[in-house]
Design a binder for these strands. Structure first.
Lengths: 211, 211
DNA sequence: TTCCAATCGGCACCGGGTGTCATTAGCTTC
DNA sequence: GAAGCTAATGACACCCGGTGCCGATTGGAA
């Protein structure tokens, strides 16, 4: 997990060159997954398609489930920085909303890959389950931000509840984005997180419009 | 999955008696898990301890991960009924809070088993991940309740966000309960769900007390 | 050229999960 | 009480994901 998403072409001095990169392997895998289905694609097939042995595959990714999480660590770091640098006077829930929305503005050419990734993560049961283990870190970022502002430990009830709730509504927004062909992810996240911050008592446009 | 948690001693006419019940098997398994650890306990050992073959074990539970979910379907049904029967004028988030709190009042002699169950589900990574697949049904109950009151489809953004958020804070409350020896689960759920309904803007006792 | 370092490949092995099929145990009917 | 139906059981063979181990390869550096 330490080096997942790392560049990899050549690092330290000495040693053999790596036969491919995490990113290449990820793209090969995502293509096979979307074409034949996740479960139906075996690790042997992935390794074959990537021109490596099965054993070597597991040196690139700790498990088949981890392939779809390419740049996740980088995204986490972005979110963490955004929250660290936001205005001190900003209410906690506003800060979280703005940070999450900002960190989900994707570049145009990344969108197709991101849709593939999210389609897998949100719809394949095995990945849906595995995602939970990754979300732990995401929640930690939120809780670590909220806790000092509330004057409470990060592992206490309210910061944890905020982290869980924020994650939940963010996932719900992602699902809506995925379900609609040309939906606007940041806009959906903004609505969802505003609802959350209001305790779902917004007599808002969103509800009238059926968003 | 259809019959998990079912009674099972003898059902239809004809045929052989089942060698044990789901509940017995669950208790045997929970004991072994808490004694030797979840990962370290193989299905072969479970089957042996329960006096059945490995193959038969998988006729009682679809997977090792499902053992800890004994009465979950019944709990879901309880929650569903509670929400169906609650006062029509009650605000959505209040109804959800009251229902969840009510459905988590445990009988004294069930608490030790429930703590074992939840310790596994919330702390063993494999089960933490698997739980996600069970939570889908829980969220569905919430979304199905909230949707008509908001005049929206159950699969639209706000009902889904509410369901995800409610689930999240409920899990956070369960974690606090598990972490403290003699904590009061309904009380923690009540606090967490009140916070949620207020958008985490409560200047409340909970925060001052550090709950 | 030699040495070192890191990757790669192959192999054996483990554990969860499934399909198949013969066997067993019980109830019902004659 | 024997035949017949039904359903659960047990044994076996597989598949697949994942890991430990070790020798073989491929490069840079001394």
């Amino acid at each position: 997990m330490a080096e997942v998403g790392g560049n990899t072409q050549y690092c330290g001095r000495g040693g053999r060159r790596r036969v491919t990169t995490h990113l290449d392997l990820e793209h090969v895998a995502l293509d096979l997954f979307t074409e034949h289905g996740y479960e139906a694609t075996t690790v042997d097939q992935l390794a074959l398609a990537a021109g490596m042995s099965r054993r070597t595959f597991f040196r690139y990714f700790p498990s088949k489930n981890d392939i779809a999480w390419g740049g996740f660590d980088r995204e986490l770091e972005r979110l963490r920085r955004w929250l660290r640098d936001c205005a001190p006077g900003l209410p906690v829930m506003d800060a979280i909303r703005q940070a999450v929305v900002a960190c989900n503005r994707l570049e145009e050419d990344e969108i197709p890959w991101h849709r593939k990734r999210m389609a897998l993560i949100l719809r394949v049961p095995a990945l849906q389950a595995h995602a939970t283990l990754r979300y732990v870190q995401w929640r930690q970022v939120i809780a670590d931000f909220a806790a000092p502002r509330l004057g409470q430990p990060a592992d206490s009830l309210v910061p944890q509840a905020i982290a869980y709730a924020a994650l939940g509504v963010a996932i719900a927004a992602h699902e809506q984005w995925l379900a609609a062909e040309h939906a606007d992810l940041p806009a959906l996240l903004d609505i969802a997180l505003r609802e959350l911050a209001s305790g779902f008592t917004l007599p808002s446009l969103a509800r009238v419009r059926g968003a």
